[in-house]
């Protein structure tokens, strides 16, 4: 008799039922950043406060995050804005905004012409699969935005 367990014959649903691992993992992930309900409103609220009536245009700002995050607790995030970064023309700030975390605002980078490049990297928490928004304000008061989708996987080994 073989003593092997063939993981491939256990499909996702069966494994879920068998172990309740999905539930556990989801609970743990939710624990990282609070309940993962739809929080798009919070993001919209935060953005309208920051923009104060201004309308962001597409382009200029690039947000790089992994398509699939290995763990939602630590997701590498890089933002870069196309700007000459001179005294007269530079990117002042970039806001990173989550659409599904319990708190929409994740962080804001403040740049100066001395920053040399409007570029920064950080690691962030993602409660669940979601869109992340980067909102950039230039020295002339114009706003630019972009967004990217990050899939947060729920691992068989506890996410």
């Amino acid at each position: 008799m073989s003593d092997k367990v063939k993981i491939e014959v256990i499909d996702r649903r069966h494994f879920l039922i068998m172990t309740g691992a999905g539930v556990t993992a989801a609970t743990m992930l939710a624990g990282l950043a609070g309940t993962a309900e739809a929080k798009a409103d919070l993001a919209a609220e935060y953005m309208s406060k920051v923009l104060a009536g201004a309308k962001p245009a597409e382009g200029k700002v690039k947000l790089t995050m992994p398509e699939i995050a290995e763990n939602g607790a630590t997701v590498p995030t890089k933002v870069s804005v196309d700007s000459p970064m001179t005294d007269k023309d530079y990117c002042q700030e970039v806001h990173i905004i989550s659409t599904k975390n319990p708190v929409a605002h994740i962080c804001t980078f403040h740049f100066t012409p001395k920053s040399g490049k409007a570029e920064a990297s950080i690691r962030v928490r993602m409660a669940t699969t979601q869109d992340v928004i980067a909102l950039a304000r230039m020295s002339d008061g114009k706003w630019y935005m972009t967004k990217t989708t990050v899939k947060v996987t729920i691992g068989g080994c506890g996410g």
């Binding site: 996702r12 999905g22 996987t153 691992g155 068989g156």
Partner: peptide, 9 residues
């Protein structure tokens, strides 16, 4: 027995 295979993700 099963490295390289997935348990969920």
């Amino acid at each position: 027995d099963n490295p390289g295979k997935r348990i969920r993700a």
